[in-house]
């Protein structure tokens, strides 16, 4: 049984109408926002939106709860930072290298994790991500507690100067939009339909002749690679890659973003990312422990609000017809 049996009942037509609406609203907001709000904050939100959407590709459309997705985000951040700073790769190639490294890591983690199902899958991903954290702590190229600092932003495709925040914002917007487009294509492809069939009833999918392990692994690698795309971009934005990115707390945060926004919806994860990052930024200024608040939101979401913001809106619109 999938975690979102109740959500998959949403009618396709309603979804596409809502998606189109959200897309239009999102596009307008994304174009206007950097002139109103600090672009670095927005870039952070965008990166986490992509990260959460990549995570949602697994939980929402294959039914796999990865509790170690920070490893991919963080690994790509390290590799991108290293490639840009030490190897001197152009920014776009550095980010790409980071994403590929994350996908490769995803291949290893995914290969091990899909050997067990359900709750075990989550525990294995968490444990392997923690192992990766300890490796990052030990190996020299990550520079331990200091992290990789002073990563050059460079230029994008050789002509966009990324030291200009506004210009960089639109580059990030393009990367994140491309990432989301890829997810949208995956979800609506024949491959995506098989993933959903596995999510809803794995034994049945197997009996229909699909090698579910191979599909799960491919989805896992895609999700890890996209999470890496987000992580690599984020490292260039902040010119920094640290242990924070690979900590289990970060894996928890991306779960929260997706849960809060709406598991299994395309608009949900970005909404959840915006709310979570916004709250974190706001709370940094007041004296209230962020982890406690994150924990409380988790508890409330799981107990009362399992459909998330986007899921609730969808349910409301369905009721109205």
């Amino acid at each position: 049984m999938s975690i979102l049996a109740q959500q998959s009942a949403a009618t396709g037509e309603l979804r596409s109408r809502l998606n189109l609406l959200t897309l239009a609203a999102g596009a307008v907001a994304a174009l206007v926002a950097p002139f109103v709000i600090y672009p670095v904050f927005l870039m952070n939100v965008l990166c986490f939106a992509l990260f959460a959407s990549a995570f949602n590709l697994l939980i929402g459309f294959v039914g796999l709860l990865s509790f170690g997705h920070a490893a991919f985000f963080g690994a790509a951040a390290y590799v991108t930072a290293h490639a840009a700073k030490v190897w001197g790769l152009p920014t776009e190639l550095a980010i790409l290298t980071g994403a590929l490294a994350a996908a490769a890591l995803g291949l290893i983690v995914g290969f091990l994790a899909i050997r067990r199902q359900g709750i075990y899958f989550s525990m294995i991903t968490l444990a392997l991500a923690q192992m990766f954290y300890f490796i990052c702590l030990e190996v020299p190229f990550t520079h331990g507690e200091d992290g990789i600092q002073g990563v050059p932003r460079g230029t994008f495709l050789g002509f966009v100067n990324l030291d200009n925040n506004l210009a960089f914002y639109f580059v990030v917007l393009a990367i994140v939009a491309a990432g989301h487009f890829a997810i949208w294509r995956i979800v609506h492809s024949p491959f995506g339909n098989i993933l959903k069939a596995i999510r809803d009833n794995e034994p049945r999918a197997i009996s229909l002749g699909y090698n579910s392990d191979s599909y799960k692994l491919r989805a896992f690698v895609l999700s890890a690679g996209l999470a890496g795309l987000a992580g690599g971009t984020n490292a260039i934005v902040f010119q920094l890659a640290t242990l924070t990115g690979v900590q289990w707390q970060s894996s928890g945060e991306v779960i929260l973003m997706t849960l809060l926004g709406g598991i299994g919806t395309l608009a949900g994860p970005p909404i959840g990312a915006a709310i979570t990052i916004g709250l974190q930024t706001y709370l940094a200024a007041v004296d209230f422990p962020v982890t406690v608040l994150i924990g409380l939101i988790f508890v409330v979401c799981v107990l009362l609000f399992r459909r998330g913001v986007a899921g609730e809106i969808l349910a409301y619109m369905r009721k109205r017809g």
Binding site: L65, I297, V302, R306
Partner: peptide
Amino acid sequence: MLHQMYRLDPLYGLLLTFGITQVIEGTFRY
């Protein structure tokens, strides 16, 4: 709280107890 999770997918139980952990540890750290 937890008893409400029994009829749901086991993943929710993990998520709920994860949230509870964050609240307890966050409070003590504070």
